[in-house]
Design a protein around this nucleic acid. Structure first.
Lengths: 119, 119
DNA sequence: ACAAGTACTTACCCCAAAGTATGTATCATG
DNA sequence: CATGATACATACTTTGGGGTAAGTACTTGT
C-alpha cells in the first residue's frame, strides 16, 4: 500500500487552496463572471437548467454548465435529475450554499443603497 | 459645441455598468485577484503603501497600484499623501468603503466555518 | 423519418487581466 | 556623487477564463 493515489480531494482543494485570505477564499468559490448571477437567481428558489438559461440570456450553455458543475463540486449547489425524457434537471442551493445567503443579502443591500439600477 | 467629449464619467461607469444583477455589481467592484486581499487588510485599519506590499508579498507593484487606483475611482478607498520625502502615503477604507464591512465580515465568517485555514 | 425539446459535451479561438522588467522623482545621508 | 528609501509609471509579454460553434442522446409528436 505504498502507492499514492491522486485522490479527488486534492483535486477539489486545488482551486480553493490558492486562497491566502478568507475573503479571497470566498471569492474563489463565488467569484467569476457567472457564479454571482447564478447564485442570485438560486436565492429565490430551485430552478431548472432551462429556467436559468432564460433568466440569464447572455450566458452560454458551456459556461452555465461549467459553473454549475464547479459549484456542485464545491457543494454549494445541489443537482436533482428526474429520470424522464426529455430531461428534467433542477438546481438549488445546498445546505452549505444556503449559508452564503447572508453574504449575498448584504451584497444586494449594498448595491441597492448605491447607484446600481437593475436592468 | 457639437463635439462629443469622451468624458471621464463614462469611463468610470464602464466597468460598473456591465452588471446585470446586484451581486454582479458588487463583484465588479470588489472582485478580481487582488481587491479582496487588499480590502481584507484595510479592514484592520489604514495602511501605508509599503505596508500593503509587505502584507501581500505575492502582489506586484503594478497590480497593487492599479487596484488601489480603481478603488479610489470607485470611492471605496481613500488615499492620503503627506508631502514629505521619502513619500508617505496612506490608504484606508472611505466612508463608502466602510459599508462593505458587513459583506466582508460575512465572508470571513463563512470561510472560518469551513475548511479554510489561514496561511 | 424527421423535427423538436432538454440537458449536456467538446474542440477550438480570443482577449483582457495579470505578470515581467525597467524607469522616474525627490531628498537625506555617507 | 552615489546609494537608499518610497511611491509610483509604462512598455511588453503571457495565460487562462470566457466565448463560438457544433455535436450527442433519448423520446414524443406529426
Amino acid at each position: 500500500m505504498t502507492a499514492i493515489k491522486e485522490n479527488s480531494t486534492s483535486n477539489a482543494n486545488r482551486r480553493a487552496s490558492k486562497a491566502t485570505c478568507p475573503v479571497s477564499f470566498v471569492m474563489s468559490k463565488i467569484g467569476g463572471h457567472w457564479k454571482p448571477i447564478i447564485l442570485f437567481h438560486l436565492l429565490s428558489g430551485p430552478k431548472r437548467y432551462s429556467e436559468l438559461k432564460k433568466l440569464i440570456p447572455a450566458v452560454t450553455e458551456k459556461m452555465l454548465i461549467q459553473h454549475l458543475k464547479e459549484m456542485q463540486e464545491d457543494v454549494l449547489v445541489f443537482r436533482k435529475a428526474e429520470n424522464v425524457v426529455p430531461p428534467f434537471v433542477t438546481y438549488s442551493l445546498s445546505a452549505e450554499g444556503e449559508q452564503l445567503r447572508p453574504i449575498l443579502d448584504e451584497m444586494v443591500k449594498w448595491a441597492d443603497a448605491r447607484d446600481f439600477k437593475p436592468q
